[in-house]
Amino acid sequence: MSPGSYNGGAVVAMIGKNCVAIASDKRFGVQMQTIGTEFSKVFPVTEKSYVGLPGLTTDTQTLQEIFRFKANMYKLREEREIEPRTLSKLVSSTLYERRWGPYFVHPLVAGLDKNNQPFICAMDLIGCITETCDFVVGGTSEENLFGICESVWEPDLEPEDLFETISQALLCSIDRDCFAGWGAVVHVITPERVITRTLKSRMD
């Protein structure tokens, strides 16, 4: 049993045409027992950037508090919102600082920058950034998500098409993962609005 599969969870982020989407399952469990079904692993940091923190839940929650604090301090100091790329460096250096006593999370950052250019990236638990221009995945369904995203993702998806693609990719992946599932939530971030949808999914 690894810390990553103790509580379970899956997060995926994708880039579309002038938009990004980030989605998460909602299960919270302790090993094989499901305790809650309203626990999304994706949190907003600014209006247009979100961070997903699948992994050991205690660390998910501690880091969420830390990042909210650091992003708010950044806003006060710089008098502007943190950009998603800067946010990813903040997350990365926070994790690498704990190189030999890491937080057990697999963070994803997704957002639109000040020019509304899409940005997504993933990190390992010690902050090695993987920045891509298609999709990033994390959590217990990581391998499933890699497979299906590689197949269904395509460039320049409009927000509504991106929503369908990311939703189906997530739902299919968590159906084959015992540790994730029990509901899902998707955020589609466009320059004009953020659309948050709760998906109907299998509850087993």
């Binding site: 809650g36 050991l56 839940t57």
Partner: peptide, 12 residues
């Protein structure tokens, strides 16, 4: 709220 010894907390 349900809290375990690892510091995971959820409302249910």
């Amino acid at each position: 709220y349900w809290i375990d010894y690892l510091g995971s907390s959820i409302e249910a």
